[in-house]
């Protein structure tokens, strides 16, 4: 998390799971919760990138409202009472995980990131021991045209971390999302093969922020691909230092 700048930014005081907490008014409920060691599961969120609210795993309740709100994109407010772990939330999070697994083809036993995957470890943490929905088993491509990297759409959960890191940190904007709903997919340039992309600098940032086995380095076999994320907080803090 970025260091707290010494400004006159107003601070809000409220409750998370009955605990009194405070945060700067521009902070999200997720940031406030993490600063107080309260765990809210996330998948699309990654500290250092903007938040989009794509996966809905971080949903929380606010007392007095029936709506579920994604903690990563909801700002803190004075006096609210946030609930992070009600029976309803546990049920919905489990449903979200099962829907993600049923939507594409996840075969952990033969996956490059087996044992290093955020989707897999989150499923375990949330106690998902099977998927109640029928697997859709769509036929999806693998693009291995790039000289160093490959994308396996079978494992993509459309979290858009690749899109955001390439745009916000590398500023190449090679990735984007095409299509709608269940037919969406991430694309490089104008849906050209990644290897023919004119914008990609081959920096590998997208590969390293990808939470699953969708983006990987070529030459890695089953369970060999572990992601390296140290660069992200470093680059973000360097950039903030330059702006100040």
């Amino acid at each position: 998390m970025s260091p707290v700048p010494i400004t006159a930014e107003p601070v809000k005081t409220f409750k998370i799971d009955g605990q009194d907490v405070s945060a700067r008014e521009t902070e999200s409920i997720l940031q406030a919760a993490r600063a107080h060691n309260i765990d809210i599961p996330t998948l699309c969120h990654l500290e250092g990138l903007s938040s989009t609210g794509a996966c809905r795993l971080c949903m929380v309740e606010i007392k007095g409202s029936n709506k579920l709100l994604p903690a990563c994109v909801t700002r803190v407010q004075e006096g609210i009472e946030v609930v992070t772990n009600s029976e309803r939330l546990v049920k919905y999070r489990r449903m979200i995980m099962e829907l993600i697994f049923s939507e594409r083809n996840h075969v952990c036993a033969v996956c490059v990131v087996n044992g290093h995957c955020e989707l897999q470890s989150t499923a375990q943490k949330l106690g998902m021991d099977h998927v109640r929905y029928p697997y859709l088993n769509p036929q999806l491509d693998v693009d291995a045209s790039h000289e160093r990297f490959a994308i396996d759409h079978n494992r993509c959960i459309l979290c858009t971390r690749c899109v955001r890191v390439c745009d916000e940190i590398e500023t190449a904007h090679t990735w984007d999302v095409m299509g709608r709903g269940i037919g969406s997919k991430v694309i490089t340039d104008f849906n050209q093969p990644w290897g023919e992309s004119e914008t990609c600098t081959r920096c590998g940032k997208c590969v390293n922020v990808c939470p699953t086995g969708a983006l990987f380095e070529k030459g890695k076999s089953v369970a060999e691909m572990a992601k390296q994320r140290q660069f992200l907080p470093y680059l973000v803090s360097r950039r903030e230092a330059m702006i100040e």
Partner: peptide
């Protein structure tokens, strides 16, 4: 008891499904 990933998720045997 569904014993192992093939019983629980259909796992590797299900890799023929998309085709």
């Amino acid at each position: 008891i569904a014993f192992g990933d093939c019983a629980v998720t259909a796992n590797v045997p299900s890799m023929r499904n998309p085709f």
